[in-house]
Nucleic acid binder design. Structure first.
Lengths: 161, 161
DNA sequence: GACAGATACTTGACTAATCAACTAATATCT
DNA sequence: AGATATTAGTTGATTAGTCAAGTATCTGTC
């Protein structure tokens, strides 16, 4: 009994049904996030920073004046970034962060956001939040909470969560 | 009234609450997909192909013997790929696809999956499906359907959907 | 206090993604 | 038919991501 083709099938112009619900869910997640990512990037483009750079700046703003050691930033990042050193290099070149060797443990490098960095984030705060709401405008707040809960469950069930 | 911190907040070691539900949902989506992506990549690694290359091979298998013009592949891809030419270059170098200029419209290049390409996909089919089910093991099938529906709604509400 | 091992990055080599021209072929308009 | 526009794809230059190996520092252990 052929069901009506799913929205995702139409999006991907796929004729045959997905081999499993799990597979459709995976593709749906990947495609949706790819679309959302492009929307988010557009907002950051005028300021000349990438999504990951923006994320790092927010983490450092959250850390406050004490700053954070390099690898501690990675553990707080959304997307795993083995290239953290060079990402910070670029942010430092733009004067958005400042790094200095930690005096008590000279292996560590303490990273702090600079005034220009804070200014950039301040300029973006409102428009970023507005964009996020806009991008998820297809869902009510209640549905957004439901989505968050389902995603939590996914991550909870992951091998190396 | 301080609520208990969300799962995502703990994951990201963030102390302060998110400025909006939409923003938490966005981060949750990004983080979840990043985790899932790494799980998926591990399966493909032994065969020496990337997620996007795998995706293209599946699209070409779906297209059958007639093959597809290069840019038509892009429209069917999950993640937008401006680098489709070089992606196909790599697949052709591995003898997984074959390209030839279309005789009726010589601007187009028709791409087809080769026998070795089909063999590679055949080797992966079972394990990919198993992995997808495993990665989404935190959700029941009903919950997976619910997730798919929410994601459909998100894409439906997107500016350039 | 010397040595083994662990940490915290850093660097180099390679691969891949991105954006902006550019070429070739077809379609359209007059 | 000839000029112009559009489409399909490629190429080059820049930037960014990935993996393995290396360096400096610290933490125990004997």
């Amino acid at each position: 009994m052929p069901e009506t083709p799913s929205r995702l099938q139409r999006d991907l112009k796929q004729n045959r049904p997905f081999p499993s619900v799990a597979q459709e869910a995976m593709l749906s997640l990947f495609k949706t996030v790819d679309d959302l990512r492009r929307g988010a990037i557009q907002v950051l483009e005028p300021e000349g920073i990438t999504l990951q750079q923006y994320n790092v700046l927010r983490i450092l703003r959250g850390a406050g004046a004490e700053g954070l050691p390099t690898l501690e930033i990675v553990t707080r990042m959304i997307e795993q970034a083995p290239g953290i050193t060079r990402l910070l290099d670029r942010l430092e070149r733009k004067k958005l962060v400042h790094r200095e060797r930690c005096p008590t443990d000279r292996r560590q490098v303490t990273c702090r956001i600079t005034e220009p960095g804070l200014g950039l984030l301040a300029r973006l705060d409102a428009v970023v939040d507005r964009t996020n709401r806009h991008l998820l405008g297809g869902l009510t707040t209640a549905e957004q909470r439901q989505l968050i809960q389902l995603l939590d469950q996914v991550r909870e069930g992951l091998p190396a969560g």
